[in-house]
Design a protein around this nucleic acid. Structure first.
Lengths: 214, 214
DNA sequence: CGGTAATCTAGAACAAGTTACAGAGTTGAT
DNA sequence: ATCAACTCTGTAACTTGTTCTAGATTACCG
């Protein structure tokens, strides 16, 4: 039998990954420390500043243990993004967007998220770069992030049963969102530019606004 | 004075970067060998298979020289993408798309490019991953790729003087194109999915089809 | 309590990107 | 032909992500 008493954690993570082997309290604590250290280092210097040895030291964990929890730097940063996304989804829920149309509400929501990212541009850099650099071995985790993002957008649209067309539009919005962030982070597009791109792509929603949910 | 007689090359590259110090024939040859080796290795195993030491060896160039020509692996792969893009733009010019509307023609063009990438998925992986992973130090080169892509799309639309709205739509299409490629490369989206996303985003063009060029 | 299986730690070792450097090779000018 | 300036080569060193290993800890079970 394994070490450290297993405890059923009721976090979003265990809910999302029911096959996860269930962690001890101390293990949960370690995991939190690691993610915290990761976010902290990322906030300073972005992707490059998140160095595995430093994360391990900051979180009081041996390097090998860090790799047991997160099998690669990209896994770690994608998990960091998951945790930040959950936080943001919670925040967004509290103040739903005010726009008249679904397109306006989605654009408003994404701009709100964008402003949050602007407050920690280095952290944003680390998370987004990891997300787009992730290879197949990180697919499940990246997919989880994608689902979370989709949920946020659908929330903003106020839809229960989106049509396939609407889901396509949402996917395109996500594509634009990620790629626009990258162009901003690498200094090739201004904040204003990103705003325009988001507003532009959100018009797609109106194209599918007729047929809709229950 | 420097070594090796300077020769004014009339390639797309020197035309695009007039500040480039102009290369010797032998230097042009080295550069070509390097790009060729890069593409070859990428075609095998994707991003990870492009190892700087191997590229240097394959192209009969010392490691230091490789770094003089391309200051990082990402620079190298972005340059590889530039060269591939030029080739593709040439190919596409020869057979313009047949669609009735601008949206159809753009979608057709991108799908043609997509099919080309499918023939060398590893190469596509290396180039696209490099492109989205590039940091600020590669901005000029990435921007060049972006301009080239924009040119291809505008060609397909058949526009001379695009409106700001249309340029926004084109940017969003590019965002979707890059991000959709990534989801495909990382196995999170099927080919069919990418097709749908491209077709979906191309509808944006119709939204701006009224006001247009001469 | 004692045993055992899994986990954790500390540190070495390895891999690949990047940098540094000494010496040889080119090139254009004089 | 010689020189100065630049470039190229070959190689070692350094950095950081990743893997490996031996020994200490922890948790559970009887």
């Amino acid at each position: 039998m394994p070490a450290e008493a297993k405890v059923e954690a009721s976090t979003a993570r265990s809910a999302a990954q029911p096959d996860t082997p269930a962690l001890t309290e101390r293990q949960e604590a370690r995991r939190r420390r690691i993610l915290h250290a990761s976010a902290q280092l990322a906030s300073r210097g972005g992707f490059d500043a998140v160095q595995m040895r430093e994360v391990a030291e900051s979180s009081q964990v041996a390097l090998g243990t860090l790799y047991r929890y997160f099998p690669s730097k990209v896994h770690l940063l994608v998990a960091t993004m998951q945790s930040q996304l959950e936080h943001m989804h919670g925040t967004l829920r509290k103040k739903p967007p005010q726009g008249e149309t679904a397109a306006e509400r989605v654009a408003e929501t994404l701009m709100r998220a964008f402003r949050a990212l602007q407050r920690e541009p280095h952290l944003a850099d680390a998370m987004v770069r990891a997300l787009t650099f992730a290879d197949r071995s990180v697919s499940p985790e990246v997919d989880q992030v994608s689902r979370q993002t989709t949920a946020i957008i659908l929330d903003a649209m106020g839809l229960e049963n989106p049509t396939p067309d609407q889901l396509s539009a949402v996917r395109v919005i996500e594509h634009t969102w990620h790629s626009a962030l990258i162009t901003w982070l690498s200094g090739r597009a201004s904040i204003a530019q990103v705003k325009i791109d988001i507003e532009t792509v959100c018009r797609l929603i109106d194209l599918t606004d007729s047929a809709s949910s229950d």
